[in-house]
Structure formats: structure tokens, C-alpha cells
Computed example of a mutant assay.
Amino acid sequence: MDNWDDMRVFLAVARAEGLSGAAPSLKMDPSTLGRRIARLERAVGAALFVKSPQGYALTDLGERMKARAAEAEIHLTHARDEGQCDATALTGQIRIGAPDGAANFLLPQVCAAIQAQNPALEVQILALPRVVNLSRREADMAVTVSPPAAGRLTVQKITDYQLHLAMRADAPPLRCVADLKERQIVGYIPDMIFDKELDYLDVIDADRVQMASNSVAVQLQMIRQSGVGIVHDFALPFAPELRMVLTDAVALARSFYLVRHTSDRRSDRLARFAQALRQGMQEEVARLEYAACLTASPPI
């Protein structure tokens, strides 16, 4: 490769296993990327990818080149971070992957506060209904609801959070969990639950949901229309017409974890951002949960 830009393009296509997947992060269109890869292969004198309608798969040479390019990327990142060690403000781009509950109701406020203190910093929030793949560099770090069991990753617990049943304040009251059988239940699409910690049906003794979505934000909007479902306490201040119900009978606790690639452990820039992110999320969860408790319906 002649320069870092060639390496950056190659790595992005290799990790995304295709041109379309790599295009957004590189801010280039797929046709331009295709020409860049073709030019690179001509310069190398060999194919780096096997192209098919299913995507771009690395050749043996491509695999070896990817390993070397990834090592160089790590060293370049560390070199950039060394230049910031004595700086007071963070700069550059940092992308966070997160489940959509955190991405919708917590990270916008937290990241806005961090960015306000670091005007040259560009923060991106990647909200996905699945676990973000850090090995493919989909993000610099990820918020998860379960600590990963495998991979070259470092994990820090961020904070615990609470969930309760909620429904419209003007709906007929619920006396007990058994009353839920007569109500429209809102929840996840069962075959799209990507983490066991998100499976709440057993808690409310339900075998199905009448209205479902893979998005927490969409579920909240469904409950605002009608029905009842499990809601993050920190989301309730965003839906003032909803109230917690049956709080003595149904109360769940879950945790958020911050996951980073092990190779980034020496990055002062990412470490400083991670610390600010953890502290900000802890404070925002506490603030929003306190606000939600003030509007909880009293136990029956």
C-alpha cells in the first residue's frame, strides 16, 4: 500500500465484507470504493478479495495484509493519542455502539455534554438491535446489557438500571399480574431478542405479545397508544402520560457494560472518553430514574 488512505479503505471493506457496508464510515459511495480497491489490487499485483453478489471475501493474501494493516492502524492510533496526552480537550471521531434503549434515552444527553466540553470532538452513536462487532471496528467502544464471554475485549460495568411495567395513566387500573391476560401486551419480537437479558415474558407470566418491535423506542410509542409493557425507568420521563404499575409484583434490574477492544487499552484518548461516558451514564440513569419514581402509581 502506498499510503494510509489506501490502508483505511482496504480495512473498511475487509471488515464490512463489502462496498456498501464500508461506504458510510468512509463517506464514499460504493462505486468509488470499488475503483479504489481495483486500483489497489493492480498496485499489489494480486487479488485481495474474492468478489461475489454476497460480498467481498478476503483472499489468503488479503487476510495477511489485513492483519498487518490492523497492526499499523493500532500504532497510528496510539501515536495520535500521544500527541493528545498533554492536551486538555479531546479531538477526532469516536463512535459508540449501543442497544437502542441506551442510544435513544441516555447517550444523546451524555454525549452532548462531553462534546460541549470538547468542541473538536466528533461523537457518533450507532444504535443497533444486536451486539456491535468491535473486532470489525464497527465502533470504538460499545455499551451492552451482558458482558461478552469471548473475544479480545476489556469490560467495565457502567451502572445498574431498573425496569417496571408501565401503561397510560388514564387506562383502567391493574390489580394483579393475572389481570395482564386481559390486556394488550407490548414487547420484543420473540425471535429477534439478541440478548437473554431482554427476554421479559416469563417475568409477567405471558406466552406472547400482541404488539411487538425489536426497538425499545417503538415499544414505548406503542404503550403510549394502548397496552402495557416492560419499560426502562429512565425512559419514562420521555413519556409523561405513562405510569409504572404493579411495582411490588414486577421489578427488574439489569446492568450496562462498557466494552472496548483490548488493543485500545493504551489509548489515552479513548480511556479519557470512556471515563467521561461511564460517569455521565451513571449520573443520567440516576437522574431519570429519580424523576420516574416521582410519577409511579402507588401499589394496590
Rank of each mutant, 00 (worst) to 15 (best):
A127Q: 04
P298M: 12
L288T: 02
E122D: 07
A291T: 00
V177L: 15
D205G: 03
M141N: 02
N214E: 13
D179C: 11
V143H: 00
M222L: 15
A72V: 03
D170H: 14
R137V: 03
P148S: 04
R152E: 06
H78N: 03
M167G: 13
A249S: 14
D199G: 01
Y161C: 10
D5L: 10
M141P: 00
D160I: 06
D160K: 10
L48Q: 01
A98R: 01
V131I: 14
Q210W: 11
R95E: 04
V13K: 07
L174A: 06
S25G: 05
G45A: 11
E182H: 13
R95K: 15
E82M: 15
P99D: 02
R224N: 14
I189L: 08
N214C: 09
A217K: 13
G92V: 02
D60K: 15
R287P: 06
D248K: 14
E122N: 12
A87P: 05
R152Q: 07
P240A: 14
A149P: 02
A239K: 01
E182Y: 06
G83F: 10
S297Q: 15
A206F: 10
P147G: 05
S226M: 09
A296G: 02
L40Q: 08
V228H: 02
A43E: 12
V186P: 00
V9R: 07
R95Q: 04
A112N: 07
A89P: 03
D81T: 04
R130T: 10
A212D: 02
Q84H: 14
S267M: 06
A239N: 05
A217W: 10
D81A: 08
N3H: 07
D170I: 13
A251N: 06
E82I: 12
K181N: 15
E284T: 07
L180K: 05
A103E: 02
D207E: 11
D86P: 00
A120Y: 10
T247P: 05
D195Q: 01
A235Q: 01
D5K: 12
L165Q: 07
C111A: 08
L201E: 06
L26K: 06
A276P: 00
